[in-house]
Write a protein that binds this DNA or RNA. Structure first.
Length: 327
DNA sequence: CCAGACGTTGTT
DNA sequence: GTCTGG
DNA sequence: CCAGACGTTGTT
DNA sequence: GTCTGG
């Protein structure tokens, strides 16, 4: 993990995921969230956090807000010092090993934990000199769609339980819950500017399917560990062991990994085809007629063979129509 | 005391 | 903000 | 994370 | 190889 993702959830969908309805889960800055099948650091991603200063445990509320992926700590003098694309420190991932002994991360571990929502993310699997893009998401059967409340009344729990509306604004599979840390940076000087930004924790993928693809993976949260992760009354030192254990279990049993087309490797390609399995993408391209150029060419180029080729093309076009109608 | 760092991934 | 190096 | 640029002189 | 852009 984790430098590229897909994110097509609407703000409202994120809010339902984050804890149901009514005033208990606020939504802010969702105009910064657009459907994206190919996003990287510096883009805005939906973050679930616990609202500060909302009283004691029983009254804690949540908020979903758009934050920039790539953390700028509150103490930064210039935001560029933490912009990996401008020679600064790379802060879109944080290694969980040793986070407690890092000046950058330690201050966030107890009070600035959050959950980052993704449809899925991309990883480039290396074989020798070539790299194959893969997409990783929750399998269709996984039913962890919402983050429950911790220590809430049964009334609250009922509110959250299952999604009670047919979700038409994004993928049907459960989104990934990724463990994150956030911070708020205020620019000093004449220009008043506030930047909320986030990093995604990474861990060792050993003994999971992710090991086949990469030497790091994000920390996956389940509905239950996500609820604890969001509870600021639980210290990091207490929660991290079970969280990592559950993340490993999740990566062992609930993920779906598949190869995608090389389209995604260029971040300017912003198409739903990015998340299409490569096999389906290839079929689609063939159906569009691009695939015919990979057919063997005629040996000679006299008029007759040219004509035959043209006829072949027309024939192919008719077949294409059939294929498209069948879909 | 002040100055300066505070990070990750991937590749060799 | 907080720690390390000098 | 990957892709793509990496440059100058002179002219409009 | 190294840096910038997205």
């Amino acid at each position: 993990m984790c430098g590229r993702g897909a994110l097509t959830l609407s703000g409202d969908r994120c809010r339902r995921i984050a804890g149901g309805h009514g005033g208990r889960t606020a939504l802010r800055g969702s105009d910064r969230l657009r459907k994206k099948y190919n996003l990287g650091p510096m883009n805005y991603v939906p973050v679930v956090r616990t609202l500060e200063g909302s009283g004691q445990e029983a009254a804690l509320d949540r908020e979903v807000c758009a934050m920039r992926w790539g953390l700028v700590p509150a103490f930064a003098k210039r935001a560029e010092d933490f912009d990996a694309f401008k020679g600064g420190s790379s802060t879109f991932n944080a290694r969980v090993e040793g986070a407690e002994s890092s000046n950058l991360w330690r201050r966030l571990l107890d009070k600035r934990r959050c959950v980052v929502l993704f449809d899925g993310f991309y990883e480039w699997k290396a074989h020798g000199k070539t790299k194959t893009p893969m997409f990783i998401r929750n399998r269709d059967e996984y039913d962890g769609h919402t983050i429950p409340w911790r220590s809430k009344t049964s009334e609250d729990l009922q509110k959250v339980g299952e999604p009670d509306e047919k979700e038409l604004d994004g993928p049907q599979h459960a989104p990934l819950f990724l463990a994150g840390l956030y911070d708020v940076w205020h620019q000093k000087g004449d220009v008043e500017e506030t930047l909320e930004s986030v990093t995604i924790l990474t861990m060792d993928p050993e003994h999971t399917i992710m090991e086949e693809v990469h030497d790091r993976m994000p920390v996956f949260l389940t509905p239950e560990t996500a609820a604890s992760w969001l509870d600021p009354s639980v210290p990091f030192s207490e929660i991290i062991r079970p969280v990592l254990k559950m993340s490993q279990a999740h990566a062992q049993s609930q993920l779906l990994l598949y190869e995608v087309s090389p389209l995604v490797s260029n971040i300017r390609n912003e198409s739903p085809d990015c998340v299409l399995p490569k096999k389906k993408y290839d079929e689609k391209q063939l159906a569009k007629g691009i695939g015919r150029f990979f057919k063997p060419k005629p040996a000679d180029s006299d008029l007759k063979s040219k004509k035959r080729t043209l006829e072949d093309c027309e024939e192919q076009d008719k077949e294409d129509v059939k294929v498209i109608r069948l879909e």
